[in-house]
Design a protein around this nucleic acid. Sequence first.
DNA 1: AGAGTGGGCCTTTTT
DNA 2: GGCCCACTCT
Length: 662
Amino acid sequence: MSVEYVLKKTHAPSSAQIDYRAELNDEQYAAVTAKPGPILVIAGAGSGKTRTLTYRVAYLIENGVEPENILLLTFTNKASREMLERVGNLLPHDISRIWGGTFHSVANRLLRRHANELGFSSDFTILDRDDAADLAIAALKATGLDTKDKTLPKGAVLLDIFGLAANTEKSIPTVVTENYPYFSEIVDKLEMIHRIYRDRKKADNVMDYDDLLVYALKLLRDHEDLRKFYQEQFQHVLVDEYQDTNKIQSDFIDILAAYHHQVMAVGDDAQSIYSWRGANFENVLTFPERFPGTREVRIETNYRSTPEILALANYAISANTKQFPKNLHAVRPAEKFSKPALICLQDASQQANFICQRIEELQEEGIDLNEIAVLYRAHFHSMELQMEMTRRQMPFELLSGLRFFEQAHVKDVAAFLKFALNSRDELAFKRIAALMPGVGERTGDKLWQKLVGGAEFASLEPPAKAVAPWKQWVETHKQITTPEIRGRASEQIQIVIDAIYQDYMKTKFPNFQSRLEDLGQLRAFAQNFEKTEEFLAQLALMTNVDGGPRKEGRAMDQPCVRLSTIHQAKGLEWKIVFVIMLCDGLFPAARSVETLEGEEEERRLFYVAVTRACDELYLTYPLMRASASFDDRWQEPSRFVMNYPRGLVNEWKIKSAPPAWS
DNA sequence: AGAGTGGGCCTTTTT
DNA sequence: GGCCCACTCT
C-alpha cells in the first residue's frame, strides 16, 4: 500500500526541535519514528506508553501532518487531555485542531454534526445510566408485562444485556445464550422490550452511551459520502489502551482507517480489565490480520517501579494461562526498603487505622500526600477508610463513587436545561415534574401524555398542591428559552436556581449550602461552553476524575490522598500505593471467579493495581469484615496474596488493636 | 388511586 | 448508603 503523501515535507525535518533519539529508548524510538502504516505497540505497565503516543503525535506533526488529520482515541478524557497537553508542550504548533478524546466523545462530535441523517436532531440529549435504566423499565411496562414478576430483570440488568449486545454487535438472543442463559426462557420478551426501548429513545431524541457508538458506526457504514470524508480526513489514527476495545470500537477504528491504513494501536493484554463491557484483548492478536503489513513493536522496559514491586507483579500475572509472552524488566536499581509489604489486620476499621497511621508516618518522612493512593476493587470497600480519614481530618479525594453529574441536585438542574433544549426529552420533563409536591410517577406520565398529545406546556393542569411551583416552572421555562438566553448554559442555571430550585433544595436537603456551592461550580463549568448542548453532552460524558469538582472538606489544590477503584486508576501512578480489602470474595469478587476467564480478569486487575506503585506497595487484608449493616463475617485472604514464594514480600506483624466495640 | 415514608436487605468494575 | 417493598396518609 503506498501512502506517499502522508509524510509530505511542508516543514523541513531539520527544523525539528525534538531530539527523539535522546529522549526515547530504542524501543520507544522505533515506535515513534516508524514508517507510515499499521503499527501495533505492545507496551508493558510503566514502560512509557503515554510518552510513546505523545511523541508519535509530535513526530507526525513535525513531519508535516496537519493536526486535524490526526485522531487520538483514549479511554478517559483525562488521558486525552494529558496527552494533548504534553504534545502542546513539545511543539510550538496549534494542536487544538487534533481530534482527541474518548471513543464516546468523538462519536458524540460526529453525531452532533450528522444526527439528522439518522432520524435524530442534533440537539439530542445523552442519558446517563440511571436515566437509561428508568427508560428500560418504562419500556418493560409498555410491553404490558407484569413489573411485579420477579423473573424479569431489573432496569440495570436490562441495560447490561442491551449494552453487551451493542458493544459486541451481537443479537439479543446470542448475548442471552452466551452470557445470560438463565434468561433464555424470556428472550422474546427481552427483544420486545429492547425494540420499545430503542424506539422510545428515538422518539424522545435521546441516546444512551452505547447509542453514541452504535449510531456513529451506523453513520459511517450507511453514508458513503460521510465515510469517505472522514476516512480521508483521518490520515493517522492512534489508539490508547487498545486491549480494552470491544467489537464496536475496533470496527469504528477499522472503518475510519480503511483508506489510509495508518493506525497505531498501543496496548497491554495483561491490563485488559473491561471484558464485562465487551472488551476483547484478542483485538490485539487479530490486529495484524486486519491490517496486513503491521509492524510490531514491543516496549518492555519498566521505568516506574522498583524491581521488587515488579517482581511481585510478574509473579502474580504469571498464574494466568491466557496471555502473550512478555518480559517486563525494571531499570531502577534494587532498593533497601522497597519490598512490598503484606499486612494482615483484624477488621476493616483496624485496616483503616493502619493506613492512616502509615500515611502520617510517610508524611513525616517528607512524602507529599499527592504521591499516595489507596486502591480497591469496589467503591464500598473504602467506606471505613473514608470515615477514619474524615475523623483524622486527613484530606482525601475520591476518584470512585458517585460522579459529580450523578448527584441528584446536579441532575435536577440539568433536567431544566435539557427540557428547554429538547422538548421531547421525556425523562427530563418527568424528573422536573416529580419535584413538584403531589406529583409522582403516575401524574408525571399523565401530564407527559397530554403534552405529547398536543397540549400546550403552559396550559397543563397539575394537582392542586403543585399549581404554584408549576407556574414558576412555566415562567422559568419561558425565560431560559428566550433567544438571548437559550444556549447560554451558565445564565440558564442561575435563573433555574434563583427562580425555583433554591427553594426546593432548602426543604429537601439537609446539606443545602454545600449543594448550592456545587451548583455554583456547575455554573462556572458551564461558562466554558458556547452552547448548552455542548455543555450538557460534556457533563454526561465527564467522570469525576476528569475534573468534576469534588471536595471532602478541603480547599481546592490542597495536597490529598487519592482513593480510587482500580479501574479508575488505570494509566495513573503514585509513589506509594495501598491495595486494600484483599479478601477472597471481595477481591477477587465472588461473582467473577465462577469462570476461568473471570478469575483471570481479576488477576489482571490485581496486576494493574500493583503496577501503579513506584516506590512502595502495601497489600492489606482484614480477617473480618465488620460493618454497620452486616453481621461480622470471617474472610479468607485473597488468593492473590496467598502462598507467595519466600522473600517476595515482607509480612508485617501488627499488634492487635483493642476490639472496636470496647 | 397514588404520593410519601420507614424498615429490611445487599453491595463490582464504567464511558 | 441506596434500593425496594409494604404500609399509611391524603
